[in-house]
Simulated assay, not measured.
Amino acid sequence: MDDLAGFLRTRRSRVDPATVGIPTDSRRRVEGLRREEVAHLSGVSVDYYVRLEQGRATQPSEQVLDALAGVLGLDGTEREHLCRLARQHRRRPKAQGKGVPPAGGSGRVRPEVLRVLDLVVGAPALIMDHRLDVLAGNRLAGLLYGRRVPGLNTARHIFLEEAERGLYADWEQCTLDVVGHLRPAAGQYPDDPRLASLIGELAMGSERFRRLWARADVRARTHGRKAYRHPLVGLLELHQENFALPGESGMELLVLSAAPGSPAEDGLRLLDGLGADGAGERAPQRRTDTRSVPPSVPSSASTGASSV
């Protein structure tokens, strides 16, 4: 329950007392709400709420969680994360015995899904898991990245490959998105050792990651603007759509499209043509077991990566 405790503390510290009808003055030294104020407003005892924040309370009921979410002003994504953290101990297997799949899935993509990926033309498309590992990509995705995309982890790429920071037109926003995506993944897959190792590696290697992780922000992986500074075709302002793959634990299909008639559409068409002429990465893009893919080395024409 430690993750739940930390999440409650960070959210409590961000609530403006005035928004819940609590007057403040210059003598107030607490940032956000006090524990007793949260308890009073949510209708639980102060002792119980203190135990929640200390990780000592039993699993809170749905009614308590709903009340806390209302007091703390949580949005839909944060509410879902709060409930997941409260329930996560129920999902932890007592033993990783024979027949128990590894946490977070196998990292392999079904051939039928790969066929769908191949049908996406004129737009970069990727299959990514909850760790932000790229499991597969179409041809244009490889040209966008300027490298083999299977085996690439976008979180590691954004935070740790400092030489490529300039390739992200919205690098700071990308870092917010990455941390916001990894937070709910950590709550949903608390027993995934590869995810835990990734988070530890990012925390060790990036001071910005450590600061953002301490904020405990969560974000939904849905859609939005993604911009890249491609060294060959210039600025590409694209729109990302995320499609969850039913039956594939944590996997999503991501498609990066350009608005019709936009400079980005021309840029993608040019990039596609340059690839056909041999100016871009032309290695096969469909190896999907990330554990068996050696780290790729960017070419001299290295491209920007997605902020997903």
Rank of each mutant, 00 (worst) to 15 (best):
L135C: 05
S306I: 12
M204S: 13
R148A: 08
H230Y: 07
R92G: 02
A169V: 04
R9Q: 10
E162K: 13
M128S: 11
A67F: 04
R35Q: 13
L132Y: 06
L65F: 12
G261Y: 06
P190D: 09
G97C: 14
L270T: 15
A220N: 09
H40V: 06
P184N: 11
I22Y: 11
E248G: 05
V297Y: 09
E164Q: 09
S257L: 02
N153V: 07
G200M: 04
R27D: 06
R110M: 04
G273F: 00
L245T: 03
Y189M: 09
D75K: 03
V149I: 15
G104P: 04
R92F: 07
H223T: 09
R225K: 07
Q88C: 11
A220W: 02
L135R: 02
E31A: 14
T175L: 08
L85N: 07
R56N: 07
V297D: 11
E237D: 15
L202A: 11
A5V: 12
L117F: 04
R148M: 11
G142D: 05
A103F: 06
R287T: 05
M128D: 04
L182T: 00
T77R: 10
G234M: 10
D2C: 02
H157A: 12
E252K: 09
R115I: 07
L202Q: 02
V15I: 14
S61W: 08
G122A: 11
H130Q: 15
Q63H: 10
L33N: 06
P294E: 13
A214L: 09
T19I: 14
V46F: 03
E172F: 05
P190A: 07
Y189C: 06
A103G: 11
P17N: 10
P184S: 09
L135K: 01
R115L: 14
L182Q: 03
Q188N: 08
G224I: 10
G250C: 05
L271E: 00
A155M: 02
R221L: 14
F209R: 01
D277M: 14
D289T: 10
L41R: 11
L256D: 00
I158L: 15
P260C: 11
D129G: 00
H230M: 03
A95K: 14
D25C: 06
A216V: 02
R282E: 14
L202K: 06
D217L: 00
L245E: 07
Y145Q: 05
G70M: 05
L212I: 07
Q63P: 00
G205A: 04
F7L: 13
D192F: 02
A264Y: 05
H230N: 01
H223G: 06
L202F: 09
G70H: 13
S26M: 12
L253M: 15
V46R: 01
R28E: 10
R225S: 05
A18T: 13
A136M: 13
R183G: 00
A301W: 12
I199F: 07
V30C: 07
H130D: 04
S42Q: 04
G250R: 03
R56P: 08
A125G: 03
D75A: 01
S206W: 06
V100W: 08
R87N: 08
E31W: 09
V134H: 05
Y228Q: 00
R215M: 11
R56H: 12
L254P: 01
A258F: 02
R84F: 02
R229W: 10
L152K: 03
V38S: 03
G166R: 12
V134P: 05
V179H: 04
T19Q: 15
Y145D: 01
V113Q: 03
Y189W: 14
K226L: 08
H40I: 04
V179W: 06
T19S: 15
